[in-house]
Design a protein around this nucleic acid. Structure first.
Lengths: 114, 114
DNA sequence: ACTCGTAATTCTACAATGTAGAAACTACTA
DNA sequence: TAGTAGTTTCTACATTGTAGAATTACGAGT
């Protein structure tokens, strides 16, 4: 997009879920974390597509782990958020907070002066 | 999109700017509010496209004002956020907060356990 | 070796949102 | 009638969001 560094709404959730994983998160856990914490359900395709885009932007990095013997199944791809990703989150949050400042949603409909 | 009720990142900013206007906001003021509070610059086309989509979803409503004599120029279209829009914002915020909970960005890069 | 079950990732396609910039509208003023 | 200011509308395209099926990779059992 025109402006460089913009974070989408879903990208934010994915970034946060990766951070929460502290280096041990991979596609499936990211999905689970978002589902559990937000209550909305998420397809795995959406998660990976976003993860790939975040990696392309240089905000996260990934490394394929050793295929675990006991577990079977394909090797996991572990994700970490890079400093650039942290910056993007910080920027997003402070910009948004500026607009939320002083807004009380309980007041909006009744108090509107139109 | 699949899930009904999802709020995009920019939509959120527009919604908030409209709320801040308390019924007196229109395209140009929404734009200015976002620019001033977030520091990022916004084209007027982006604002109206979003406003139109929000109206189509039933989250905001608009009414064209009297064309003001002293001012000249086209009549303004004033916006208000509807209860449905407030709900959407509330839902968005609480879902997101669940993922932010306990996250400290200053800690991420150094503290990551990868 | 062949097939099955399990865990995970990758791929494909499309819908919704984000963004830019030019065009058009509507009043006043000269 | 032309110019100017304030505002909205239109058009086109880029990026992000989402779904679901296909594929990869391994161990175990036969």
């Amino acid at each position: 997009m025109g402006r460089d560094g913009f974070v989408g709404a879903f990208e934010e959730l994915v970034l946060l879920a990766v951070i929460r994983g502290r280096g041990t998160g991979y596609g499936m856990t990211v999905r689970r974390e978002i589902e559990e914490r937000t209550g909305r359900d998420v397809t795995i395709g959406a998660v990976y597509a976003t993860l790939d885009r975040l990696e392309k932007k240089g905000w996260v990095t990934s490394a394929v782990g050793e295929p675990d013997a006991d577990r079977g199944g394909r090797a996991r791809r572990y994700f970490r958020v890079l400093p650039e990703g942290v910056d993007a989150l910080q920027t997003l949050r402070s910009a948004r907070d500026g607009l939320w400042e002083g807004v009380d949603l309980d007041d909006v409909v009744s108090g509107g002066a139109s």
